[in-house]
Design a protein around this nucleic acid. Structure first.
Lengths: 194, 194
DNA sequence: CGCGACGTTGATTTGCCTCAACGATTGTGG
DNA sequence: CCACAATCGTTGAGGCAAATCAACGTCGCG
């Protein structure tokens, strides 16, 4: 059952008693999303902290020219959110939709706040989760400032070898910050240490 | 005394008893750094979680051409670290030095781990701290993907109106991801909605 | 089958970089 | 207190990586 994979990822970092596990489970609900359908749209206020129990999601913003910029992919086992919206209860600036048919586990933000009190160890879990996420976003930012488009592409392939096979090329282009046309041209160059 | 400002920033989010405050204090030590002197150099393994109790620090990487890319400024009241190095105990890829004469409060990573056990609420504090930091890095990444150099500059001025006055222009250029020359040219353009 | 989404390719443009030279300011040692 | 070096910002000429715009082939899918 899909709650198992969430539990497994949590108990990897903190210990939970039977009753705590039950208490946790009681607050999550399942939501299924079909490929390309929205989970969150710009302007909504995000109410749920979201775990991807199957499939793959993406978050992205749309700039004033209508171009998409992908912030994150979230395959099975990852969390995804518009952090700013959920922390400050402001309208989202990000969109989140399904890259493929997906299944989500949702917990209402206010319920999670309560759980932090009844299961203090959850603070530890989300601290660790967030720390790692922060480290990886910092790394990505540095890469964006210092590497060429090609180097960023190769980086992406190394880091997410399985993901890349499931993604349309234009999503990868958007993630690494170039146009689909330019990525296509890069890949058709034979040499250049690929 | 400089420990007060750290305490104030913590007790804003969690409650600490007298004895907990003492316990906390006992694990921090003070370090002073003169302007332009290093606190952390690429290749070191970071051992200390670091709070800036006075002055201003910066973290940055140096690319293969010797160009600096600033990841973060940390004025008084902020934390600064090479997250990846401190989490995984690997050699740092970042450098950290003082933008102006500064004072730091350090706690050994292993001591902090112990404190997480004796003062579980600290997990909550650092969870919240890291969540906010994550949200702001995500925002910066999106800006980097969707905005022009000028828009990023104006953004920076709005977000850090006081900081900007204390920084050499070339640091700002590095932070927003352009060369000092180009920033200079941008600023000398009269029009263009400045 | 036919339509829309996707990738490709080419011609042209542009935002930003590189390199180099030059004042202005700062700071430092004698 | 001055001379000198180092650092910083400015300006100009030229170059390049990546964007833009447009046209076209292909494929998966309703």
């Amino acid at each position: 059952m899909s709650f198992e994979i969430l539990l497994k990822s949590i108990t990897q970092h903190i210990a939970l008693s039977e009753s705590e596990q039950e208490g946790l489970k009681a607050h999550f609900k399942i939501k299924k999303i079909k490929k390309k359908h929205f989970y969150l749209q710009e302007g909504d206020v995000q109410q749920f902290v979201t775990f991807v129990s199957g499939g793959c999601m993406r978050s992205y913003s749309i700039d004033e020219n209508g171009v998409e910029h992908i912030l994150q992919f979230a395959p099975t086992g990852w969390w995804i959110a518009d952090m700013h919206s959920i922390l400050n209860q402001t309208p989202a600036t990000l969109n989140i939709d399904a890259v493929e048919d997906s299944e989500l586990l949702l917990i209402r933000r206010t319920d999670l706040e309560k759980l932090y009190d009844s299961i203090p160890q959850l603070n530890r879990f989300f601290r660790i989760l967030t720390e790692r996420s922060l480290a990886s976003f910092q790394h990505r930012l540095i890469d964006g400032l210092s590497l060429t488009a090609l180097a960023r592409y190769n980086n992406f392939c190394e880091r997410y070898p399985t993901l890349i096979q499931a993604l349309p090329q234009k999503y990868v282009a958007s993630y690494i910050g170039i146009t689909p046309e330019f990525l296509s041209k890069m890949l058709s160059q034979p040499m250049k240490k690929r």
